[in-house]
Amino acid sequence: MLKSFLVISSSLAMIGAALAADLPQPQPVPVEAAPIGKAPVGKAPVGKAPEPIVTKG
Rank of each mutant, 00 (worst) to 15 (best):
L12R: 11
P24R: 05
S10V: 09
A49S: 03
M14K: 12
P30F: 04
A13N: 09
L6F: 12
S11Q: 15
S11H: 14
G42K: 04
P28M: 00
P24Q: 05
G42W: 07
K38Y: 06
P40N: 08
A13F: 10
L6A: 15
A13W: 08
P35Y: 00
K43L: 12
A20M: 08
L12A: 14
V41M: 06
A20W: 07
A34H: 07
V41R: 12
F5D: 14
G47H: 01
L12C: 13
S11I: 08
G47V: 03
V41L: 13
P45T: 04
L12D: 13
P28W: 01
V46F: 11
A18R: 11
D22H: 02
K38V: 11
L12P: 00
I15F: 12
L23H: 03
V29C: 10
A20L: 10
A49T: 05
V29K: 03
Q27D: 07
I15S: 10
L12Y: 11
G47F: 04
I36L: 08
S10K: 05
V31L: 11
S10G: 13
G42I: 09
I15G: 09
A20T: 08
V46Y: 06
I8P: 02
S9M: 08
Q27G: 05
P35G: 02
P40D: 02
I15Y: 09
V29E: 14
A44I: 10
L6N: 12
G47A: 01
A33H: 00
I8K: 14
P45I: 04
A44C: 03
G16R: 04
A17D: 02
Q25N: 07
F5Y: 12
L6H: 09
A39Y: 07
A49F: 04
E32A: 10
P28D: 06
L6C: 12
I15H: 10
V31R: 07
V46H: 05
A18C: 15
Q27A: 06
A39F: 06
I8Q: 13
A34W: 02
V29G: 09
L2V: 14
K38N: 10
P40F: 08
Q27T: 02
V31F: 07
P26Y: 01
A17M: 07
S10R: 09
A17E: 00
V29D: 13
A49N: 03
G37H: 04
S11F: 13
S11K: 10
Q25L: 02
G47N: 04
I15E: 07
K3T: 11
P28H: 06
K3C: 05
S10E: 12
G16T: 06
S9H: 09
P40E: 08
G42V: 04
L12Q: 12
G42C: 06
A33D: 00
G42R: 05
S10M: 13
V41W: 05
G42S: 01
V7F: 15
I8Y: 14
A44T: 09
L12T: 11
A18S: 15
L2R: 15
A20C: 08
V46I: 11
P45M: 05
M14Y: 13
V41P: 06
L6W: 10
M14N: 13
A49P: 01
V7T: 15
E32K: 05
D22C: 10
K3F: 10
A18V: 14
S4G: 09
V46P: 06
V41K: 10
G47S: 06
L2H: 14
